[in-house]
Design a protein around this nucleic acid. Structure first.
Lengths: 200, 200, 200, 200
DNA sequence: TCATAACCGAGACGGTACGTCTCGTCTTGGG
DNA sequence: CCCAAGACGAGACGTACCGTCTCGGTTATGA
């Protein structure tokens, strides 16, 4: 009976104001201390309006975060897959050194205690990045840059696991020198031997 | 000014009761539904007593979890550092597939929200493990098994980062096949080239 | 800034439930054992709702008590101001010997701990009674029953102060014999001397 | 079996330190906000020591208050009972205008909700004053200054009730002019008529 | 002279209530 | 039907005191 085309349409300005406020507060006080009450006040919006469109804090924060960092940190597409990977990881490391890194840490932290946040994080953040990385690796294989029999999951974890660990554990900064060394070691490890032989 | 030898002594039974209650509740309802109010009630303890000894929920949970994880997974000490590392990581992976893994995830999660908790985690959990690993790598270098100029932090992150990422993100299990592949790639990467040349 | 015509309206049932619970608890356990926590629980109301409308325990209790005391004890209006005062005070004394006396004592008690509560008490209880008394005294002056230069505040305190003291200190009951004696002494003292001379 | 004359004697310095701290805090923050915790800290004394010697806050405050104001505001003893009363009341009014007045108000306030405080207040504060006043009135009667048939309770309430009311209700200050007027009216009322006739 | 008993400070402890904050739902009036 | 404002029940937060309870150490007899 209720015609879906009936009644007032959703106001996109409101939607944006909410995400803007969420971003600002995420930066200022972090995910842990973020409250929907605070977001509503900051955005000049009724709390009910937030609850109408997002089921919980995690999904709101996730949408705000994704809007900021973009769907992925885009891989450049040059003729060298290796350079593309190196450049993307350098950009990612730079991003993670900033406020985005803190928010990602908190999202991962919360995910350990809340399955729904984990699902959102994987579906919206991690998987697209994994897929993008996979494309580049496949391109490298087709190029002959990388060994054809590599296990994609293993390489993905070797490329990104160390960065995540560094960011989460804080035992050391995510500086470029370390990144370059570790990426070099991994990519060298998947570069066909004949290349090395040719070099001898 | 406050003479430590004065006043009533701290009651260890109370301390234990609080940590016990924390463990139980962490298990039953998870970290983010955990309330100090609830812990106090469960432990039969005044809230103030908890606040006297722990600055916040995270530190309390961390101390409770640290009690749960056993001591460092010892590195076997054979004549081959490589085999020692491979074996230790296989055992570690096995441990992380069980309840300990769950606990470690939660400890890492907790650390994201409080610096003091992070410090507790690093001091009591991570550092001992890092140091043990360092010893084996040094042994390997002295043996000539590993390149002499390797950056320890990079190798540590490459060996353990992928496992941590896999465990935290849940995108894939920590199965032995993947572990073996990634460890092989890393250790190959730090094995001196002359070994390879001899093989040719 | 805050438009009063916006937002959900205050629920009068809640307001009443809070005052009802306060009265009951005041009766059952007394003021200094009264807790807002307890009132909230008894009224089936959130604590914040109480704090939204009353600044502290005293004001809440005062408002609850003010509901209990009836309107001003009316002064009868005959041709003799003296008789009117005597009759009103007799009626007042009777009232104060009952439950109302108990309540008035508590209101005075409350007022000692909070200026706002004192203000409430003066505005809503004391001032109307003082003004009514003032009218009768003025009438008596115009009649020639009372000296024209009397200080109203002094007379008010002399008429009612002794009753209040007796009621608050409990050192003696508020019996009619004492009332009559003290009122006679005061009113004699403000009755013009010529009357006495005529009697000689 | 335990000889009461054995063991260490009570330290009078401690006793004084506690009362001193109580007085200071009573002045600074009033009876309502006074805490035994605060007294102990201020006096440099263990809480248990206070609880050893006083059953509750009221009795501690009462003892401190009585030590400050003395057992009574002494009546001067000249040949005129009337002047003695006038002077004592002027001194009392002055006392009540200061911090002592505030504390007395709070004690009366609390007495409305706590029978034990009421008892302490009557026994230790009010009764001695009533008795002293009674002596002076009797002296006045024997002098022939006052009528021989006066009702002591009525006069006491007329002399002190107005001051108490003024202090408790705050509707007006306890200034000397009003005091003098009301005392004059009462004392005139109990002065034998022949005196007046002689004056004519 | 020296054991004994009470005194004393410090402060841990189980509690209760405080006053504040946020949650998620609801009601209201106005687009 | 959308929205801002904000009342509401619920309940955790972290703090302040309550009154009781060890502690270790300190006097002051009286055996």
């Amino acid at each position: 009976m209720p015609d879906p085309a009936t009644g007032r349409r959703r106001n996109p300005a409101t939607h944006d104001a909410i995400l803007d406020a969420t971003c600002v507060l995420l930066d200022e006080i972090g995910f842990d201390k973020l409250s929907l009450e605070g977001v509503a006040a900051r955005a000049g919006v009724g709390k009910a309006t937030i609850y109408r469109w997002w089921p919980n804090k995690s999904s709101l924060a996730m949408e705000a975060l994704l809007r900021e960092v973009g769907p992925t940190v885009a891989f450049p597409e040059t003729e060298s897959a290796r350079h593309d990977i190196e450049n993307q990881i350098r950009k990612l490391a730079k991003l993670y050194r900033g406020k985005t890194g803190r928010v990602v840490c908190e999202m991962i932290g919360l995910s350990q205690f809340d399955a729904e946040t984990m699902r959102l994080f994987n579906d919206n953040f991690l998987d697209p990045r994994r897929n993008a990385a996979k494309q580049v690796l496949l391109r490298g294989i087709q190029n002959g840059e990388f060994k054809p029999d590599l296990d994609f999951d293993v390489i993905f974890d070797l490329l990104y696991g160390p960065i995540i660990q560094r960011m989460l554990m804080r035992h050391a900064g995510i500086d470029e020198r370390h990144i370059d060394l570790h990426v070099a070691l991994v990519l060298d490890g998947i570069t066909p031997a004949k290349t090395n032989i040719e070099l001898i």
